[in-house]
C-alpha cells in the first residue's frame, strides 16, 4: 500500500459501505471518488465489496417454504384446518 495514501485510505474506509449503497452524502462521496481515482488498493476494496454483496443477492434462492415444513408449521400452530387455504 502506498504510504502517502495510507492515512487517507484508513480515514475513508468507514465511508465505503454507504458509498456502495449510494447513500453517502455528496461531500464525502466526492472526496472518496477523488481518492479512488488515485488509489488502486481502495478501488479494489470497493469493487470487491460490491461484488461480494452482489454475489450474495444473486445466490440467494427466493423460493417458497418446503411443503412438509409448511405442513408441520401449521400443525404446531394448530392451524391445520387452514392448511389448504389461499397458499
Amino acid at each position: 500500500m502506498k504510504h502517502q495514501h495510507k492515512h487517507e485510505c484508513n480515514e475513508l474506509l468507514g465511508t465505503i459501505s454507504e458509498y456502495v449503497d449510494g447513500s453517502l452524502r455528496d461531500e464525502l462521496c466526492r472526496e472518496l471518488e477523488r481518492h479512488l481515482s488515485e488509489c488502486d488498493d481502495c478501488r479494489v476494496v470497493v469493487n470487491t465489496m460490491k461484488k461480494t454483496i452482489d454475489l450474495y443477492q444473486t445466490e440467494t434462492v427466493r423460493e417458497g417454504l418446503p411443503a412438509d415444513v409448511r405442513q408441520r408449521l401449521f400443525k404446531s400452530l394448530q392451524l391445520d384446518d387452514l392448511l389448504h387455504g389461499a397458499h
Binding site: T60, R62, L65, V69, L73, F74, L77, L79, L82, G85
Partner: peptide
Amino acid sequence: DRAEFARLVDLASAPIYR
C-alpha cells in the same frame, strides 16, 4: 382472526425460514 394469522404465516414463513 385465525385466517388472517394463517395468511401472515404464508406471507412471512419463507423469509423467516431462509
